[in-house]
Each structure stands twice: as C-alpha cells, then as structure tokens.
Simulated assay, not measured.
Amino acid sequence: MKIAFFIAAAVMIAVALAALLLPLVRQGRQSGHSRSVFALTLAIAFALPLGTGALYLLVGTPAALNGVSAEARAPISMQQALVELRAHLTQHPDDQQGWMLLAQSSIMLHQSADARDAYDHVLKLDANNAEAMVGWAESDSMLRDDHLIEGRAADLLKRAVQLHPDSQRGLWLLGISDFQHGAYQDAAATWRLLQPQLEPGSTVAKAVAEQIAVADARAGGAPAGESSGSAGAVPAAPATQGASLQVQVALAPALKDRLGAGDTLFVYARAENGPPMPLAVARLEAGKLPVSVTLTDGMAMMPSLKLSSVQRVFVGARISHSGQPIAQTGDLEGDAGVVEVDRTTPVKISIDKVH
C-alpha cells in the first residue's frame, strides 16, 4: 500500500514540477539570466516535494497508508455498545433517552433485571413517563417466578393507562393483571378498551377477542355491563372446563413437625418445556393435608397459558410458611415429575423435601 502511494505521489510531483519549471527555464534563457533561473529551478525542485512531505506528516494521516486495521473494520457488538452506553450513563446519569435505550436493549437481550433498573432511572427523571411505567411493570413480571403483575407494577400500569388511554401494551398488561387476580369482569372491560385500536380481523384482534370471551365466561357468562335477560341478548354458552388433572397431596411423616399454623399449600402444574409460570395453580390451607385437588384450565394465571395448551406438565406442591407463591428457604416441597395432561388416574405427590 505504501509503495503504490509513493509511486503515485512521485509521478504527480514530477508532472507538477515539469509544468512549473520548463516555462521558467525558457524565460531565463530568453532574458539572459539562465544561471540564476537554473538555481531557482533547483531550489523549487527540492523544496516542493520536501515541503509537501513535511506538511503531510504534520497534518495528514500517515497511518492510513497501512490500510484500515481489522479492529477498525470489525463491527461493534451489541454487548460492546451496551458497555459504552453504561459508561456514558455513569458520566451522564440524567440522560433520560440513554436510560430508555438501555432499557429497550436489555429487553431485546432478555435481561429483565437490567431493563427494570433502567426504566426505574427513567421514572426518577420523569415520573410521568408512561412508556417507562409499562416497561417497568412488564420487566418486573418477567423477573417473578409466578409472573404476577401486582403491587407497584399494577399501580404503574393503572397510572400509565390514565395518562395514555391508547397505550396498547399498558391495556393488555393491565387486563392480564386483573385476570390473574380473578377480576374477570375488569379484565374483559380493560381489553375492550384495547379492541378499537387494533386492526379488525388481525391476529392480535382475534386473540384479544378470544381472551375477552374467556374472561366473560369466567365472570359468569355475560359481558360486563350486560345482563342475560336484556332484550336481544343471546345467553353465553357455559364455559368448558377443558383439560384437568386430579392431584393427591400428602405430607411425609418426617416433615410433619415443620408444618406451622397458617402455612399455605400451593399445588401447581407448569409446562415441561417453557416459562416457569404455572399453567394451573391451586391455593389451599396446608393444615388440611392430605388433600385431593383438581387442576383445570380455569386455574390458569394467564388466559393464553393453560393446561390444554400443552401435552405434558411438571406437577408439584409446596408448603409456604410466608404465604407467598415464590419459593423461599425453609418451604416444604414435593413433586410427581412430568405427566401427560390427558392422564385420567390421580397424580400422587409426597411433600418430602425442604427448599
């Protein structure tokens, strides 16, 4: 690369010198001052190339003669970009757009904890940022084993929807929160606010309509705001139970002394390969063990994730001393492993381990 550059430069300088000096020599001969003109010619011939080279070394880019390095040619990775972005935010913690970019990038990389933290920074800078409210709530639910949307997450969603009634993600997640907590009429009403914003006949519109129908059915068969006896109303078909599993749970004798007053029993089924959120869960008083419970589609925590959506599930039971569904140290556990959803015989579980 260097040799080619120097050859091209030499040719260009030679042409420039010829165009400049030949007329000068001719004029010197005609005027009778050939010796002085010759001396001036030599000075220009040496000074021009040397001056040009010195000027290039001073203000040019000599390193460019070596070509572009492999490091410079290599595209920057997503992780490298995030490292630089975090370094920037360390120096400029009030850069709201930077925090939003970090949150959205973390979501893409399935880094829910980083996303929630970044959204939290945005909310500290702008408490009324509806997009950050929805993002925080969604990230928080992804971090939970049960994927529940409650507490601050639910409060933020309500606030976001109040500020921006056209927030599609906000309305969808708020409806899911209502559905998870058994407020089926509220869930259906919230999702109905979402419907006009969707393209009629689209896949999303059809999915929302299906979830509204499920919520209506669980709420009693009639849409919120309508009565089954109103004129022209068509009675809704009774909700079908769908898939179901009968589970028998007992506590191992060796752990009976660890059972405390007020302990809560959770019996659940989750997909063999999928998210950790249960497809069906029942909450009972642990003091009533041994018990028999039937897990059904009606016990799903999210309308789109239920027993009938898979073929095989992991079935387990846990006694929670805190009453919380998320496992904690000291909880008592047991499971039956993976079973077929269409199984007709009871699934037996012995709670025989300490978490």
Rank of each mutant, 00 (worst) to 15 (best):
L307D: 00
L279A: 06
G220K: 11
P278F: 01
P346Q: 08
T296C: 04
L193T: 00
L279I: 04
G232Y: 06
L295N: 06
A132E: 14
G225N: 11
K353M: 10
A205G: 10
S350Y: 01
L24S: 05
A8R: 00
A239W: 14
H181L: 05
L20H: 08
V347W: 11
L305T: 11
D117Y: 03
A10E: 03
S202G: 07
A10Q: 00
A132N: 11
L295V: 08
H181I: 03
R169H: 09
I326C: 08
A243P: 01
K2Y: 12
D146G: 10
G274L: 09
D216V: 06
S31F: 07
T345H: 11
R318K: 08
A317M: 01
V161A: 04
A189W: 07
F266T: 03
G151S: 07
L245R: 01
E84V: 06
A282V: 10
L125E: 06
R73D: 05
V347I: 14
V208K: 09
T90H: 05
W191I: 03
S244L: 01
S177M: 01
R218P: 03
Q27V: 06
D117W: 03
D166M: 13
F179C: 12
I76H: 03
M302Y: 12
S202E: 12
S202P: 09
A300E: 06
S139A: 15
D216G: 06
W191V: 06
P223A: 14
G298T: 09
A18F: 13
L174K: 01
T41C: 14
T264P: 02
G323V: 02
E84G: 05
A217D: 10
Q30N: 05
H92Y: 13
E333T: 14
A282C: 08
V354H: 10
N273M: 13
M299D: 13
T61R: 12
F314M: 12
R283M: 11
D352L: 02
W136F: 14
A16L: 09
S112N: 15
A282H: 08
R318Q: 04
D263G: 10
L305R: 15
A254D: 12
A4D: 03
G229P: 02
L173Y: 15
L55V: 00
L156N: 07
L251Y: 07
